[in-house]
Amino acid sequence: MTMKLTLMDSGWVLVAVLLGGCVAQPSVSLEMEDSAVQVRSYQSRTYEGVAVTTVMHAVVSTLQDLGFVIRMGDARLGLVSASRFEKGRLGAAHGELLVTATVREISPEHVEVRVNARLGMQPVEDPEPYRDFFAAVSQALFLEHGAVPAKAGG
């Protein structure tokens, strides 16, 4: 059986192709916004006069204090990944809270910690949780090693 396309059919095909082209394709965005610098500043803390391994240990034990399970940790790379199940409150959706922390020596006397958190698909950009986290790390360092935290930002 053969099928002949009429002018009308061809018109509909053309419309369908054109409309199909209008469907937005998800693009890969790697642009850095101005606010990213600000976000990075409250995601980072520098600690003074304390060994990088000590800070790394304090970061991991603080994550555990906060109920996280450590999924991955590499002392040589100074990298820790952890997760915590967040139960939605007041109708908020539940989801996995994922945290990545990097700990690196930026000078013989200074160690920088950077933490990123993501709740489900959404990056956490509110400064408050990061402030609370670093306060807990500082407390752990002070109680266990007598170290004093330095400053916010890199």
Binding site: D65, L66, E86, G88, R89, L90, G91, A92, A93, L97, A117, L119, V124, D126, E128, P129, Y130, D132, F133, A135, A136, Q139
Partner: peptide, 14 residues
């Protein structure tokens, strides 16, 4: 309901 829409604040304090 409206309060729920905004999501509960994330708590990372001890």
């Amino acid at each position: 309901l409206l309060g729920g829409c905004s999501g509960a604040p994330l708590d990372l304090s001890l």
